[in-house]
């Protein structure tokens, strides 16, 4: 069953149209990748889903048209956005940041369990549990951002370049954790990545954006096999 569906979505910042007809479909428990060059509109697509930018076309989540909703309303439906550049509460400790993520939840016991789960998923965070978030490394902050999104117990995660600025081994750790999360929790995902190799470790299907338009959509396996994808995004 389809959880999220984008139909011919357009978006603009003021007079500048940035998305020019993006369509994609993510099934329940599915994971979908968005690839593309810098400035292609990947981030904007995620912002369109989470309501942070004005859009045209249709965005349907769980059978409900969510285009035009405010970000907080979208979030309340269970879509958790891990934005590019992370953004955590530097003044708060790691544990406090995780609790903030659970803001809309009321199940105290479940929250404590999920904190333990996140720390298990990202053992680096376990070691820094009492540190202020501002004292974390870039990789640790990325993990914290993902973990905080998990804490809201979402039905769908929107991940924006989780590998950005990380050493290859750290990026791999992060994606390993994301894959495990997907397997264990079944949370659906939209994964934006420059590094297609990493993305393909998680997603089933993906689309390639070029100047605001989906130019190519297929399964991971199909895309991996294509020459132009290989040349452009897989380093060979």
């Amino acid at each position: 069953m389809t959880l999220l569906e984008l139909e011919d979505v357009t978006a603009s910042y003021g007079p500048v149209q940035v998305l020019d007809g993006v369509s994609l479909s993510v099934p329940e428990n599915g994971a979908f990748g968005i690839l593309g060059a810098n400035g292609a509109g990947k981030t904007t697509t995620l912002r369109a889903i989470s309501g942070a930018v004005r859009t045209g076309g249709r965005i349907v989540f769980d059978g409900k048209d969510i285009s035009g909703m405010r970000p907080d309303q979208v979030a309340a439906l269970g879509i958790a956005h891990v934005p590019e550049g992370r953004g955590s509460f530097g003044d708060l400790t790691v544990r406090e940041n995780l609790r903030v993520g659970a803001y809309l939840r009321k199940d105290r016991k479940g929250i404590d369990e999920d904190i333990d789960y996140c720390l298990d998923l990202f053992p680096n965070l376990q070691d820094r549990i009492k540190s202020n978030a501002s004292a974390l490394s870039g990789g640790e902050q990325q993990m914290l951002a993902v973990a905080r999104a998990i804490m809201s117990k979402p039905r769908m995660l929107l991940l924006d370049e989780a590998s950005l600025g990380l050493a290859p081994s750290t990026a791999k750790n992060v994606y390993d954790a994301i894959r495990r999360l997907r397997l264990e929790s079944g949370i659906a995902m939209v994964v934006v990545e420059q590094n297609a190799n990493l993305a393909f470790t998680v997603v089933d299907d993906a689309t390639v954006l070029e100047t605001g338009r989906s130019v190519l959509t297929g399964t991971s396996a199909e895309l991996k096999g294509m020459d132009e994808i290989r040349r452009a995004y897989l380093g060979g």
Partner: peptide, 21 residues
Amino acid sequence: GRAFAIVKGNENVASSMGISP
């Protein structure tokens, strides 16, 4: 109060968590 603190901390994160700044 917690919502106030979250808005104070980071407005973007606040709205990504369902809190309207």
